[in-house]
Amino acid sequence: MIEIHLYGKLRRFTDTLDPKRESTLLVPAYEGDTIRDIIERIGMPMDEVGSNIFLNGEYSHPSRPVKDGDRLGIFPDDMQLLYKWHFKKEG
C-alpha cells in the first residue's frame, strides 16, 4: 500500500476534510506503477494537481515509479510554493 497525504481542495478524496488534521488514505500499488497511475486510481483530476508532489519527501514528477510502502504527498495547484525557477546563470 502507498500512504497518500493530501492537502487543500484535494482533501475531499479522503475522509478527513479538517485542514488542521492529516488527510491520508491508503492505495494499493502494483508493479510498474507511477505517481500518475496512483493519482488516476484515486480519481483525482490531473489539472487540480500542482507541481508540488513529494515521494518519500523528495520533490517528484508524476512519471516517477512508486513502490509498496512509499509515502506520497500531493498539493493542489493553488497551494504550491516550491517552483521550477528559471534563473539566468552568470557566464
Binding site: T34, I35, L55, E58, Y59, S60, H61, P62, S63, R64, L82, Y83, K84, W85, F87, K89
Partner: peptide, 18 residues
C-alpha cells in the same frame, strides 16, 4: 535556493545542472 534544490530528484523533473 529551496526550490531548485528540492527539485529534480526523480522522473522527468529536470535537474538544474548548475
Amino acid at each position: 535556493t529551496i526550490a531548485p534544490e528540492i527539485l529534480g530528484v526523480g522522473g522527468e523533473a529536470d535537474p538544474l545542472d548548475a
